[in-house]
Design a protein around this nucleic acid. Structure first.
Lengths: 351, 351
DNA sequence: TTGAAAGCGCTAACAA
DNA sequence: TTGTTAGCGCTTTCAA
């Protein structure tokens, strides 16, 4: 079967094609297409017409090489599989939508080696900036970031030294803060349920802050349970059952994320446990999901959207005006949402 | 304060810098760095050493321009805010990890205009292939895809004509299939609860297939409820309450996604409704979350991971061997998971 | 096994 | 307002 192809795509079109079709020099075509420099309305119309009918799509590779300007912002995150990073992405997109900049996402699966590779790959496209999750990176990755000469924003965490700018919350403080609230509410036998992931530094820091604050009250984590992969809601159920089977005396369960906390909540409600009198519960993140649960779960909003927005704003500002000083630090302060699963004792505005 | 900068990042390093540092021609450095052509072990070592100590990161822009090869695959999806597209992304990543190709994500927020813009933006980087959600695009977008000359895979949906290849399920069939199962189970008064989004063509097609199959049994959707934004779990609760307040005679509720179905399930369980005897429920997607619910919800797996994998495989194959014929079509057939919320009547292997 | 020359498609800088 | 020239940093091609 022979068939006439209306748009034969043998060779991608170039500026030269548009130039020839419109009878205008390549340079002027380039100017029209980028809205640069003064071009008469007449030629402008001619060029636009030609470009449109030909279906010309500019070659950004050549443009970037010639101008050494790339409107890409590399965003490097550990995962897309829970709601936290997509929400950060939304914040970034919201801000970059009003600029020429475009986010490009790389996922590391919480692997430092993969992070290093993804970073190398992305830097080789010479982006205008980098937004990267966390403050912990391989030495090589830190060296690359430091030598890149572009704005770098490390996000989510502020417990450490940034390479350039950072935007986030203190997970140590978040852990401490929650521990204090739990102790003040009168709970004494506290269990911890979390992810096994040794490379989730933020979860680790929350845990460290948590135990540290408990210690100040002469308490320690009475029992703990860790998981790895699978449906978080289901794991929350299973771990809750397991930890209570082993340590029935527990009167509070602190979960490292809201999803497993929700699983625990559903389980305990089915068992007819009196929450928060008999057992109190708290999670972490403030995910939207929580709104539909039978009880409002105690949690702490990690300000993911704001983090994304603030990070993107830093990059946008630095690209817009390269004299903007680097090293900006934005620390967001999450507060506890007590919900229905953590006894509220008294206001402590000084926390 | 003055400070010595150990890695001054004035000008990004070039091949020339490595060439000078190693005393080897630029060409040979290039060969070493790309593992191309025969290079003696001695020079190879010298070059690698120099590149490493300098901290050289190749400039892919220049490389891509010179070789007209770009190892990027554009992935264009409507959203990251529910679990469905991230899971597709995982499938894509799993396959591309074993190749030189790298996915680059663009998000359209279900807007055709935005899709057109994102596509234009991505095509201007001359990617090696495009994976794009859905079969509905603006005329301009279709023209760009058709003229791009690269492999295009439209994913998720197979109810329509692809530009090149497509991988997905038939949402019409999915809707019909579920309707048939519901009718066979003996339900008669069926309510539909879904999203308001007029641009979610796949949800629309499921609904169309659903009503069509009901009609064949002389039934129609007795009442329906639509939502827009907010916590899906909460919306599921609210809509379920609303539809039952209005139409208490309903004996089945079909939800357009699992998250709102889960909200409905939790609500009905709290009300002490007998599921699936008094009211049956079904959702759509097969999200992992469901595993932790008090009852196993009836649903249909949309094969998101497989769709991502199959799409990436097509691109990888076509890039590897450009003579591979285009127009590949992969139709996945989802089956019903009856769970605990849809009465199972009999096996119908012929469906 | 190595090197030299040309050019990928565009834009900066300058000239007309 | 428009055009010409040179060159971005790399790879292809060809020669040594």
């Amino acid at each position: 079967m022979t068939r006439e192809n209306p748009t034969p795509a043998v060779r991608p079109l170039t500026l030269r094609d548009v130039s020839e079709a419109s009878g205008v020099s390549e340079m002027t075509v380039s100017r029209v297409l980028r809205n640069r420099g003064d071009v008469s309305e007449a030629t402008r119309a001619k060029v636009l017409e030609a470009a449109k009918t030909l279906g010309y799509v500019p070659n950004k590779i050549a443009g970037a090489l010639a101008s050494s300007r790339v409107n890409l912002v590399a965003v490097i995150i550990p995962s897309l599989s829970n709601m936290v990073f997509p929400e950060v992405m939304m914040g970034i997109s919201q801000i970059l939508e009003d600029t020429e900049l475009q986010p490009v996402v790389g996922v590391t699966n919480y692997s430092p080696e993969r992070e290093e590779k993804v970073l190398y790959e992305m830097l080789s496209w010479r982006p205008s900036g980098v937004i990267i999750a966390g403050l912990e990176h391989t030495e090589a990755a830190k060296a690359m970031l430091g030598a890149s000469g572009i704005p770098i924003v490390e996000i989510m965490d502020v417990d450490g030294e940034p390479i350039d700018s950072m935007v986030g919350i203190s997970h140590r403080r978040a852990g401490r803060h929650m521990a204090t609230a739990i102790v003040e509410a009168g709970y004494q036998k506290i269990g911890f349920l979390g992810t096994k992931m040794p490379l989730d530094h933020r979860a680790r820091k929350r845990f460290e802050g948590f135990t540290e604050a408990l210690a100040k009250s002469g308490l320690e984590v009475a029992d703990s349970e860790f998981y790895d992969g699978g449906s978080a809601l289901l794991k929350g159920r299973e771990m809750t059952q397991a930890i209570l089977a082993r340590s029935p005396e527990l009167d509070f369960l602190y979960y490292s994320n809201d999803m497993i906390a929700a699983g625990g909540l559903l389980y305990l409600l089915e068992k007819g446990i009196d929450i928060p009198a008999q057992i109190g519960l708290a999670g972490f993140n403030g995910v939207e999901l929580l709104d539909g649960l039978p009880r409002s779960l105690a949690t702490m909003d990690a300000h993911r959207l704001d983090i994304g927005r603030a990070a993107a704003e830093i990059i946008a500002r630095r690209v817009e005006d390269p004299t903007t000083p680097p090293g900006e630090v934005v620390v967001l302060k999450p507060s506890i949402d007590f919900g229905d699963t953590l006894k509220r004792v008294k206001k402590r505005p000084d926390l």
